[in-house]
C-alpha cells in the first residue's frame, strides 16, 4: 500500500468521493470562520458603512473575482474532458484575474489607510475581513500555480482530482466574497 491513499474497501465509497466529502467539510468549517467575521461586523458596527470605501473599486474587483470563478469552472470542465491545453489556458486566466483582484484589494488598502486606519472600528473590521479573505486568495493563487506547473507536466491526464479540488477552493473563496462585498461595501 502506498502511504497516500487508503484503498477503499471493496464495497466502499470511491476514493474521489471520500476526497470530495472531506473538501466540503473543510468548506463547512471555514464557512463558520467567515460567518463569525460577519457576525462581528454587525455586532461592532451595526449597519454602518464608512463613506470613504471606494464603491467603484469594490464593484470592479467583485466582477473580476466572479469572472475568475467562471474561468476556473471552465478549467475544471476541460480537465474532466481531458483537454489539457484548454485547462492550462483557463487556469492561467484564473490566476491572472485572481492577481488583479488582489491588486485591487491592495490598492483599496492603500487608500483605506488614509481614511479609516486599523485604529478605528470600521478600519478594524474592514482590514480584518478583507485581510483574511485576501489570505485565502493568496493560498488559492499558490494552488493555481502548482496546478499550472503540474498540468504542463501532464500530471492530470488520468487523475483530475487535484484540479477539481483547487477549482472548488477557488469557488469557495468567491462565495465568501459574494457575502463580504455587500457586507463591507453596500448594506
Amino acid at each position: 500500500m502506498t502511504v497516500t491513499d487508503a484503498p477503499p474497501l471493496e464495497h466502499g465509497v470511491s476514493r474521489i468521493k471520500i476526497n470530495r466529502i472531506g473538501l466540503w467539510l473543510f468548506f463547512l468549517s471555514e464557512a463558520m470562520l467567515f460567518a463569525g467575521l460577519i457576525a462581528i461586523r454587525f455586532s461592532l458596527l451595526g449597519t454602518e458603512v464608512d463613506e470613504a470605501v471606494s464603491q467603484s473599486i469594490g464593484l470592479v474587483i467583485t466582477v473580476i473575482l466572479l469572472a475568475s470563478s467562471y474561468t476556473a469552472f471552465r478549467a475544471e470542465h476541460a480537465a474532466h474532458k481531458g483537454d489539457q491545453a484548454a485547462m492550462v489556458q483557463y487556469l492561467w486566466a484564473t490566476l491572472i484575474l485572481g492577481t488583479i483582484f488582489l491588486g485591487g484589494v491592495a490598492f483599496e488598502w492603500y487608500e483605506a489607510f488614509m481614511e479609516f486606519p486599523p485604529g478605528t472600528a470600521f478600519g478594524t473590521v474592514f482590514f480584518t475581513m478583507t485581510g483574511i479573505h485576501a489570505f485565502h486568495v493568496i493560498t488559492g493563487l499558490i494552488f493555481l500555480t502548482v496546478l499550472i506547473r503540474n498540468a504542463k507536466a501532464g500530471r492530470y491526464a488520468d487523475d483530475s482530482w487535484p484540479v477539481e479540488a483547487g477549482v472548488k477552493y477557488w469557488h469557495f473563496v468567491d462565495i465568501v466574497w459574494v457575502f463580504f462585498y455587500p457586507v463591507l461595501y453596500l448594506i
Partner: peptide, 10 residues
C-alpha cells in the same frame, strides 16, 4: 448568488 455558484460551478 452563492446558490448559483454552489450548484452550477461547484
Amino acid at each position: 448568488k452563492a446558490a448559483i455558484i454552489l450548484v452550477a460551478f461547484m
